[in-house]
């Protein structure tokens, strides 16, 4: 599958997601409402930590609350939680039909998920950034770095969606991916920097984080927004490497799983 058809597929899925969300207007508003509350809770709690200190882990109070706003805003764009459908398909036996389709499964899936993410940029990320700005929880990045931030978000969404796919691919062997999902969710909550900026971690935990893919999802783009101390191109390069590596891993697991299904029956 070439880039053009991935893009077409993404566009088609974005439209479906948009239509669905417009039908479920109440659901959409209630999601935004809930997101706002979480944004306020985290921002006020972390700001309270700066009562007697100027900086924690190299971040000042403004950077920290900006970190909270940006990470909350892009939570749905770069999701840590979500159903891809492979697990259900394996359990119901539908997977046999999916496997027979003449399209590349992984890139096809990614295309669709990018569409959903694109929708959430408009429906969730931008409104939440606005809310954060109004509440005084947002410092804008230098204008020149915005394009880098956007590229980083795209790469992060890519990685996040492949991780979700990898979780469900485990159902080829385990029957249910539910356990793995929870395990990954536990680690990604901490190591994506959602609960706490990774800058606040002790050195040993930051080292562990370096070797996990999770900080490439929410943390890296957010860090770029608040001004990363490192070379931006280096950060993007690391993200790209992870994205390619995980995608290849998904391809390998998918084909192994396909053999499993074809040999043992769905």
């Amino acid at each position: 599958m070439d880039g053009l058809s991935v893009a077409t597929n993404a566009w088609a899925h974005a439209r479906i997601a948009l239509q669905r969300q417009l039908v479920y207007r109440f659901s959409n508003w209630s999601g935004l409402f809930t997101n706002c509350f979480f944004l306020y809770f985290r921002a006020y709690a972390l700001r309270a930590c700066f009562e007697h200190r100027i900086a924690i882990g190299g971040l000042d109070a403004d950077q920290t609350v900006t970190y909270v706003t940006v990470s909350q805003a892009f939570l749905m764009v770069i999701p840590a939680w979500g159903k891809v459908g492979v697990g259900d398909a394996v359990r119901s036996g539908q997977i046999v039909i999916d496997l027979a389709r003449p399209v590349d499964f992984v890139s096809c899936h990614l295309g669709g998920r990018f569409g959903v993410s694109a929708y959430y940029v408009v429906a969730r990320a931008l409104p939440l950034l606005a809310v954060g700005a109004l509440a005084g929880f947002l410092v804008l990045p230098p204008l020149g770095e915005l394009p880098v931030f956007v590229i980083s978000v795209v790469l992060a969404a890519w990685i996040a969606h492949v991780i979700l796919l990898l979780i469900e691919l485990s159902s080829f062997w385990l029957g249910s991916e539910q356990g793995v999902r929870w395990l990954v969710l536990g680690f990604s909550g901490l190591f994506s920097g959602l609960i706490l900026p990774i800058d606040f971690f002790p050195q040993w935990a930051r080292t562990i984080s370096r070797f996990l893919p999770f900080e490439q999802t929410l943390y890296t783009p957010t860090r770029i927004w608040i001004g990363a101390g490192e070379s931006l191109w280096l950060l993007l390069g690391v993200q790209l490497l992870w994205a390619v590596f995980l995608t290849l891993l998904a391809q390998v697991l998918f084909h192994a799983g396909r053999r499993e299904v074809l040999v043992h029956g769905g």
Binding site: G179, G189, L190
Partner: peptide
């Protein structure tokens, strides 16, 4: 199998909140 995995997973989710 799945039950144990999920229990461990859920404990991890809440456990790591405490770590944070």
């Amino acid at each position: 199998g799945s039950f144990v995995f999920e229990l461990v997973g859920r404990l991890t989710v809440t456990g790591l909140e405490l770590v944070a």
